[in-house]
């Protein structure tokens, strides 16, 4: 038995078509579309609250403020509603969250419908982890990445990058697309919702 460790990269049109068809077929199933939305909202919420865990803990959950105030604080933390994110950073953050939602929905389908073990979806887990770090960096000063890098004393260096650290989010988007391809590649020749996937 041999292990194929050749890098599998998303480079050809056919590979992009495979990803597109796989995603479209999985999301055509209502329960997986709902799952994708849920995962995306969860992912975006993780990114948003990773910077302000104190607000979540001390204001939203732990204070005696009126529920209306707590709801306002919660909602205002999100991109395009509050002021914490520029349009560019908010867009990249939202795109990362959408990709995480799609990635997790496709991985869930693969595990459930094709009776695949969790470990065989590990490519998507790597994309999720990098997506969390990258999106945290897109938010600039995120607890996730800044906390890790501050151990090495290099958090300020993020802003020395041309896009002020947004490069990591762009990398995260790439990794998430790659993990989607790995999942789709693993389902080649099979069927999704009764429709065949190319070999």
């Amino acid at each position: 038995m041999t292990v194929d460790l050749r890098p599998r990269l998303l480079t050809t049109v056919d590979e992009w078509r495979l990803v597109g068809r796989t995603v479209r077929l999985v999301l055509s199933l209502p329960q997986y579309a709902v799952l994708a939305v849920g995962y995306a909202v969860l992912g975006l919420s993780v990114f948003v609250f990773s910077r302000n865990v104190a607000i979540l803990r001390q204001i939203v959950l732990g204070s005696s403020l009126p529920w209306g105030s707590r709801a306002t604080v919660t909602v205002e933390l999100y991109p395009f509603i509050g002021t914490a994110y520029t349009t560019l950073r908010g867009t990249v953050l939202a795109l990362t969250a959408v990709l995480i939602g799609i990635d997790m929905a496709v991985a869930t389908y693969h595990v459930r419908e094709h009776r695949l073990s969790v470990g065989q979806g590990s490519g998507s887990l790597g994309g999720i982890v990098l997506g969390t770090l990258g999106a945290g960096c897109a938010a600039c000063g995120s607890a996730v990445l800044a906390g890790l890098l501050s151990v090495a004393g290099v958090s300020g260096l993020l802003l020395a990058l041309p896009l002020d650290g947004l490069e990591f989010s762009v990398l995260a988007v790439f990794v998430l697309l790659l993990s989607l391809y790995w999942l789709a590649d693993g389902m080649r020749g099979g069927e999704i919702a009764g429709c065949p996937l190319p070999e």
């Binding site: 302000n52 204001i59 914490a84 000063g141």
Partner: peptide
């Protein structure tokens, strides 16, 4: 861990820490 970071005190007691250029409503509420 980064700037801007704000520490809010209400009635002389620590209320919360806010990271990033959050909106007025976050501070006021």
């Amino acid at each position: 861990r980064g700037t801007p970071t704000f520490f809010l005190f209400s009635g002389g007691s620590f209320a919360t820490e806010i990271v990033g250029p959050q909106s007025y409503d976050v501070f006021a509420n």
